[in-house]
Amino acid sequence: MRSDNKKTVIVGIFVLIGIIILVVGILTLGAQQKAFVKSYRVFAVFDDVAGLQTGNNVWFSGVKIGNVRKINFFGESQVEIEMNLESSTKDFIRKNSKATISSDGLIGNKIIVIYGGTGEAPPIEAGDRLEAVMPLDTDRMMETLQENNLNLVNITNDLKVLTGRLAGGEGIVGAMLTDSVLVQEFKSIMSNFNQTANNSNRMSRELARFSSQLNQSGTLVDDLLNDTTLFGNLKSTSEELDQTVKRAQEAAKNINKITENLQSTDNPAGMMLNDEQFADMLKSTLENLDEGSASFNETLEAMRYHWLFRRSFRKMERAKEKESED
């Protein structure tokens, strides 16, 4: 009888411990998965949930705050996610917060990440629908990466050809790498460049100094640039100059006309210049005149010593002498 009681107690303890293990396990599981925490329900509609499953976690700022309760098709081909979130997070998640699908590791489970939201927006309420942001599509990423890879292959091929040519001494750079004379010349060019750059530098400094001097008030350039009176004077001068030029043009026209007249034979001056017969006649006339004037001169000289005129000539000489003495 006593043995039976002992066995009963042992069985009781044995079963009790087993039940305790079970209860502790359930409570721990419930606490960890927030099963016994008061929660509220929010929604998000995605085009593609990328393998998200019921029970997957919902994170906010890196903290697990709930899980996915239901996944339903919505609209034409969209998916509505129903999430259970802890009531304590209500004050921190705003109505303008966004939801996206992420992963809790490189190859981990899918999760929903709630982020963003500004203080201006009111806190979230049960039944609200969060704005869904589509996650980066790995397939699209891989496609882009493949394109990059192809580009990289092309680049490396080009680089291979380029380096091959360089190593073979082709082109300017290749020749520079292999030809020592060219290198020396290049060095001298570079030193000339350097010198030129120094000179340019100096010149630019001088120009800067010169321009600063020009900018000083009272200088001609500064007056030209800034003195409005001088500008007005210059303007009027330029206008006058313009008129003068116009007049000069008219004068040139007149001269041109005169020249044309001189070239024709229908006027006395033109005839003098262009008619050879007239010229010969004029020449002979002038020669006759010269001869006549010479004989007239001789006649006058003879007259000086003639008794009739000798007296008046002497008077004239005395008057001249008197004038010179005064």
């Binding site: 079970l22 721990t28 599981l29 998965q33």
Partner: peptide, 18 residues
């Protein structure tokens, strides 16, 4: 260890096991 252990299982696992 036990956080990770209970994170991986669900009530369905325990009830189905029982």
């Amino acid at each position: 260890f036990f956080v990770q252990v209970f994170d991986a299982i669900s009530f369905l696992d325990i009830s189905s096991s029982l």
